Amino acid sequence: MAKKPQLAIDTRPWRDTANNKPFVRIRNVSKKFGDIIAVDDVSLDIYKSELFCLLGGSGSGKSTLLRMLAGFENPTSGAIEIDGQDMTAVPPYDRPVNMMFQSYALFPHMSVEQNIAYGLKRDGLPRAEINARVEELLALVKLEDYGKRKPHQLSGGQRQRVALARALAKRPKLLLLDEPLGALDKKLREETQFELVKIQESLGVTFIVVTHDQEEAMTLATRIGVMNQGEIVMVGEPTDIYEFPNSRFVANFIGSANMVEGVVSEDEPDHIRIRSSELGCDIYVGHGVDCAPEQRLWWAIRPEKMVLSREKPAGLNGANVATGIVEEIAYLGDISVYQIALESGKRLRVSQTNSVRGNPDAITWEETVYVSWDEDAGSVLTS
């Protein structure tokens, strides 16, 4: 008799908040510097073994929030709990937390081994235990043969891994990383992102990473908290943040999006129709939306969700097909990005995969083309 396949266990505790307790609780936390509100009434739950990314632009409050978790700044109001303990009166050195800075802050006169062992020696651990821990961490970050070297003898990626090993040496329950890959070049940063994920998964330590790099957050994170002007404006898994943004800010901040303004002309339980003078056609959305007839709203669609063609496709109920002229083409190797000028003056960005090598039939400059999309390809946004 065939064995019944077992259902995979969902290891994402944030999807079952009734049966999972947050490891980090941030409750109504605000931070003011004089008249400036750096963090504004932030509440956030982060679960054990997450790799959570705080993503935002300069001045969004993400680093200030991280410093409050570390204990380097005190909240003006609100409370922070880590592993069930209120951190309000706990100094940084007594928190079950370590922090890895963007500069790495390695001691230049010490070897790699001595840098990693520094905190353990300060805590008075036996030499044999320190040596075993250092050896274990060197293997974890794949620097077994570099223990005797000084930081200046290492590449940027190697120094980053030494700083990570040192931050993990005291086995913190929570590791805070402030722009950890910001000093690396693009190719090395991409390689190191996957290494960082592997290390975090193998240890099970909860990581909170601050970054302004959207691609980095999408690669690293189990979940992302998008920050703007001191507030968390959306929290979700990378696919949720990208595919289902909750506002124009999030849609524009994460990746590239075409943003179109329109007016609701049909509002039904199973669909809505948006009249768009910018597109020169209606937008048919294949699901209901909480809106009203004649309401002004916005529709966002990613460049890769649109299709270019020379022949006019059959539109859905006479909608979802715009026409324009190819104004610019950016060839990026794996994809080409087309800028299409519509009659209204609106410009759309449409990307296509370059699946055919040296395609002689590729759409080119100054051609008249049709841009089409599926009924569920875009996001309707009311704010």
Score class of each variant (00 low, 15 high):
residue 4 K to F: 01
residue 4 K to T: 14
residue 5 P to L: 09
residue 6 Q to H: 08
residue 7 L to W: 00
residue 9 I to D: 06
residue 9 I to Y: 06
residue 10 D to N: 15
residue 14 W to P: 00
residue 16 D to H: 15
residue 26 I to K: 01
residue 30 S to R: 11
residue 32 K to E: 06
residue 35 D to Q: 13
residue 36 I to A: 14
residue 36 I to V: 15
residue 42 V to F: 04
residue 54 L to S: 05
residue 57 G to C: 07
residue 57 G to H: 05
residue 58 S to K: 08
residue 59 G to A: 08
residue 59 G to W: 12
residue 64 T to N: 08
residue 66 L to C: 08
residue 70 A to R: 01
residue 70 A to K: 04
residue 70 A to P: 07
residue 72 F to Q: 02
residue 76 T to R: 09
residue 76 T to G: 08
residue 83 D to M: 02
residue 89 A to S: 11
residue 92 P to L: 03
residue 94 D to L: 12
residue 95 R to S: 13
residue 101 F to D: 04
residue 102 Q to H: 01
residue 105 A to E: 03
residue 107 F to D: 03
residue 114 Q to P: 00
residue 120 L to F: 01
residue 120 L to P: 00
residue 121 K to V: 03
residue 122 R to T: 03
residue 125 L to C: 09
residue 130 I to Q: 08
residue 133 R to D: 09
residue 137 L to S: 03
residue 137 L to K: 02
residue 138 L to Q: 02
residue 145 D to E: 15
residue 149 R to F: 07
residue 151 P to A: 00
residue 153 Q to L: 01
residue 154 L to A: 07
residue 154 L to Q: 10
residue 154 L to R: 04
residue 158 Q to K: 01
residue 161 R to I: 07
residue 162 V to T: 00
residue 176 L to G: 09
residue 177 L to V: 08
residue 178 D to A: 07
residue 182 G to K: 00
residue 185 D to K: 07
residue 186 K to F: 02
residue 189 R to F: 07
residue 192 T to L: 14
residue 193 Q to R: 15
residue 194 F to M: 11
residue 197 V to R: 15
residue 198 K to D: 14
residue 200 Q to W: 01
residue 201 E to P: 00
residue 205 V to W: 09
residue 207 F to T: 13
residue 210 V to I: 13
residue 211 T to N: 03
residue 212 H to N: 02
residue 212 H to T: 07
residue 216 E to C: 11
residue 218 M to Y: 03
residue 220 L to P: 05
residue 222 T to W: 04
residue 225 G to P: 03
residue 230 G to Y: 05
residue 230 G to C: 06
residue 230 G to M: 04
residue 232 I to L: 15
residue 234 M to S: 02
residue 238 P to A: 11
residue 238 P to F: 06
residue 241 I to A: 00
residue 243 E to T: 11
residue 250 V to R: 06
residue 252 N to Q: 15
residue 254 I to Q: 04
residue 255 G to E: 07
residue 256 S to M: 12
residue 260 V to Y: 10
residue 264 V to Y: 00
residue 265 S to G: 02
residue 272 I to K: 03
residue 273 R to Y: 03
residue 279 L to D: 10
residue 280 G to E: 06
residue 286 G to D: 14
residue 293 P to G: 10
residue 301 I to F: 04
residue 302 R to D: 10
residue 304 E to F: 06
residue 306 M to L: 13
residue 318 G to A: 04
residue 318 G to D: 10
residue 324 G to I: 09
residue 325 I to V: 15
residue 330 A to F: 13
residue 330 A to N: 12
residue 332 L to M: 15
residue 332 L to R: 13
residue 332 L to P: 00
residue 333 G to M: 10
residue 339 Q to S: 13
residue 340 I to C: 10
residue 341 A to L: 14
residue 342 L to A: 12
residue 344 S to Y: 06
residue 345 G to M: 05
residue 346 K to H: 13
residue 346 K to T: 14
residue 348 L to T: 13
residue 351 S to I: 09
residue 352 Q to G: 08
residue 352 Q to H: 12
residue 353 T to K: 13
residue 354 N to R: 09
residue 358 G to Q: 10
residue 359 N to W: 11
residue 360 P to I: 05
residue 365 W to F: 15
residue 366 E to A: 14
residue 372 S to D: 10
residue 373 W to G: 02
residue 373 W to S: 01
residue 378 G to V: 14
residue 380 V to Q: 04
residue 381 L to N: 05
